[in-house]
Lab assay of single mutants.
Amino acid sequence: LKTAGVNTTDKEMEVLHLRNVSFEDAGEYTCLAGNSIGLSHHSAWLTVLEALEERPAVMTSPLYLEIIIYCTGAFLISCMVGSVIVYKMKSGTKKSDFHSQMAVHKLAKSIPLRRQVTVSADSSASMNSGVLLVRPSRLSSSGTPMLAGVSEYELPEDPRWELPRDRLVLGKPLGEGCFGQVVLAEAIGLDKDKPNRVTKVAVKMLKSDATEKDLSDLISEMEMMKMIGKHKNIINLLGACTQDGPLYVIVEYASKGNLREYLQARRPPGLEYCYNPSHNPEEQLSSKDLVSCAYQVARGMEYLASKKCIHRDLAARNVLVTEDNVMKIADFGLARDIHHIDYYKKTTNGRLPVKWMAPEALFDRIYTHQSDVWSFGVLLWEIFTLGGSPYPGVPVEELFKLLKEGHRMDKPSNCTNELYMMMRDCWHAVPSQRPTFKQLVEDLDRIVALTSNQEYLDLSMPLDQYSPSFPDTRSSTCSSGEDSVFSHEPLPEEPCLPRHPAQLANGGLKRR
């Protein structure tokens, strides 16, 4: 031991701790050491302190810390799992109470259905409401065949629209698609105040090879029609059969078919879209009749726009005509997947739907009320060519290029400059510069009032120099000039209409 001194630092001082000593042992101690050379000694003081209470040693090893962490984590996880189980049990009790009230408590799974309603004014964004509309049932219905791709499903009954099956008599087919079909039928007692009145209706139903998605689409269309409500110039929902059998959606019946066929059937002799010497046209149409058709469609679209509904496929083929020549817009409630459109795929009647699409819908897939206005301009062109085919002879690839360059279709022969300028306004490259349906209704209403009933179509000018029955994407082998976009001569082996020498072909294109 070194004694503290003047020249001794703290580091040089050493402390020796002795245990089991008493206060009597306190004092100075000297350590002597010697050898043959000499003797040396050092002294140190022993200080006795009071004994401290002994405390248990605390484990601070890493293993002990890990044990604490794992135990704490396990406890927290157990609490979370327990909370989830309690929540599930409570929510399951509430669901079972709800389904027992709906009398569908025996169901095993559900079809996820979404009601898609486009509400954005400047995009294709949609509001999806995840309302459960249908659930599968283990119960089988008697007297009705089961669908191959869709098991029997039981829908919640809506008393406002439900019609008993025994009050619906199915008739002949009116048309069909890939998985759905429409048949003519007679409904008894659609009007609650007149329970014995028989009404001719159209009934939409699924085919035998339909899938769950097809069922989902049909129900979504029905729900959309319920929500949009009734208007004179749209196909209205009349009722539905949802209980004890396949789903039947009952809508208004339009006896004169779609507008395109309606116009073609009323072309003057010699100007029909397909040469037929025995062709006997229906009643002749006046200019006022054509303007009235456009006015009614505009009114229907104005109503749909007021309900925040974007059609996305407005064309003469999707406008139906009733016995009283009332125009009714159809298929506005269809669920369309705008992100998976095949631009080169034709519709069932051979038309390319892209020829009715606005550039922003075609290139950027942006659907708005103003893109519907563009389609309405093409529909106007169809009306005043009596069912002509837009951009005849123009392949899709060429159409993309022409639209980007600002080309537009030429004025039809039997169309006034004012109406043609309306078409051109609908085809404005900037969507915000196109008229609204409200403005179109006002303009067409004024034109109808000024147009005489006696103004019949000028038969001295050809209505349509093209054969719409030909595929639109076909290139002409005998077109006049180098560019078949601006002219389209008859093919030698097929009868077509004579070309008027002083008139540019109706399907020609102009640059805006």
Rank of each mutant, 00 (worst) to 15 (best):
D372V: 02
D289A: 10
A315V: 00
E282A: 11
P173H: 03
Q454R: 13
K438N: 08
Y344F: 02
H231Q: 10
C478S: 11
D364V: 12
K192E: 13
V203G: 02
D337N: 08
V291A: 12
L403Q: 02
T211I: 02
A210P: 08
H279N: 04
S306F: 11
S287P: 15
E442A: 09
R474G: 09
V249A: 13
L402P: 04
R434S: 00
H407R: 07
I341L: 12
M423T: 00
I310R: 00
N318S: 00
Q454H: 13
Y343H: 13
R446C: 11
Y391S: 03
S375C: 10
E272K: 13
K192M: 13
D410G: 09
A210G: 11
T436P: 09
D472A: 11
D209N: 08
G300S: 03
N349Y: 08
Y253S: 01
D313Y: 01
A187S: 15
V198M: 12
V169L: 14
P412R: 00
W356G: 01
G300C: 01
K307E: 11
S286P: 07
Q433H: 10
L263V: 09
I447S: 14
W427R: 00
G393D: 01
K411R: 08
Q439L: 08
I188T: 08
G245S: 11
A265D: 07
V198L: 11
R299P: 01
P462R: 09
N258K: 00
L184S: 15
P246R: 07
D410Y: 12
E302G: 07
P395S: 03
E398K: 12
S475T: 11
G387R: 04
Q296R: 02
P471R: 10
P468S: 06
I366N: 05
E186V: 04
R266G: 12
G333D: 01
S484F: 15
A361G: 11
F332I: 01
K346M: 15
I383V: 04
R267T: 01
C293Y: 09
I338M: 08
S460Y: 07
L247W: 03
T242M: 04
P359T: 09
L263R: 01
M225V: 12
P395H: 12
V485G: 10
D337H: 15
S389C: 03
Q454P: 13
D193N: 09
K207R: 11
F363C: 05
S306T: 09
S432T: 13
K200T: 11
Y253C: 04
E212K: 08
E360D: 03
C478Y: 07
G350R: 03
E223Q: 10
T348P: 02
D214Y: 08
A240S: 04
S255Y: 08
G350A: 01
N325H: 05
V297E: 01
Y343D: 00
V251E: 15
S286C: 07
L419V: 08
D372G: 01
A335G: 01
D166H: 03
Q465P: 10
D324A: 10
Y344C: 00
V182A: 08
D443V: 11
T347P: 02
L352P: 02
R446G: 07
D244A: 06
L259M: 03
V183E: 14
F437Y: 02
D464G: 05
I366M: 05
Y303H: 09
V297M: 01
E442V: 09
S484Y: 15
Q296H: 12
T451I: 14
H339D: 08
V354A: 01
V326A: 03
K438Q: 11
P390Q: 02
I188V: 05
P462A: 05
Y466C: 08
S479C: 15
N236T: 15
S476P: 14
Q370K: 11
N453H: 06
M423V: 00
Y303D: 04
S371I: 03
D483V: 15
L170F: 15
L304V: 15
D464V: 11
G387D: 03
R351L: 14
